[in-house]
Amino acid sequence: MKMIILSIITALIFSCSQPQQDVAKVKQLTPNEFKKQKLSSKSVLLDVRTPEEFSAGHLDGAENVDYRGGDFAKQMSNWDKDKVYYLYCASGNRSGKAAELLREAGFKHIYNIGGYNTLKEAGVPTEVKVKE
């Protein structure tokens, strides 16, 4: 009996010492931390607000992918998982939820940068979509 218990304890110790799988985490960035980021061709800036919110003003270079539009998961299935994704919305809530979906889908480099107005007030460059 002692041998069985000792074997079980030994197995537990060795199973706990196995390297843990590298699980990506969604990182939070303040507006000032985001301004220091060097965006490149491997970076994607996503505005997950509605098209109407996006048209009223958005960060320079942002792509609009409406989190609540109904096909966010379908759209993200076509994205490159090796790129770095920066997400924002009106307050940071939708972008946080969208970032979690990316993480669950296996994306590795995900940043929630918060709300549009906070980013704008911090001096992050913005643009307004001109209606045609």
Rank of each mutant, 00 (worst) to 15 (best):
I110N: 02
S43P: 14
T118N: 15
L46Y: 15
V44Q: 10
I13G: 04
D66E: 06
P31R: 14
H58L: 07
G61Y: 06
K27T: 12
S43C: 13
E63C: 01
V130M: 13
A122P: 00
E52V: 11
A122L: 07
A62N: 09
V44T: 14
Q21P: 13
K42A: 14
Q75V: 15
F34C: 01
V130W: 00
A105G: 05
D47E: 02
N78E: 14
L119D: 09
Y88E: 05
E100M: 14
G123V: 01
Y67C: 00
K129N: 08
L46D: 10
E33F: 04
S55H: 14
S95K: 03
V130P: 01
V26H: 06
G69F: 04
S7I: 01
R103S: 05
A56Q: 10
E104V: 11
G61K: 01
K129G: 00
N78Y: 09
S7L: 13
C16F: 10
R49W: 00
I8V: 09
Y85F: 06
Q18R: 05
Y88K: 03
I113N: 10
I9Y: 15
V23H: 01
Q20Y: 09
K25M: 08
M76P: 06
V84W: 09
S7H: 03
S7G: 08
K38D: 07
F107R: 07
E100V: 10
Y111R: 02
A56M: 03
I8R: 05
G70K: 00
I13F: 14
V124A: 01
D82Q: 14
K129E: 05
S41E: 10
L102P: 00
P51T: 09
Y67V: 12
L119V: 02
W79E: 01
N112R: 11
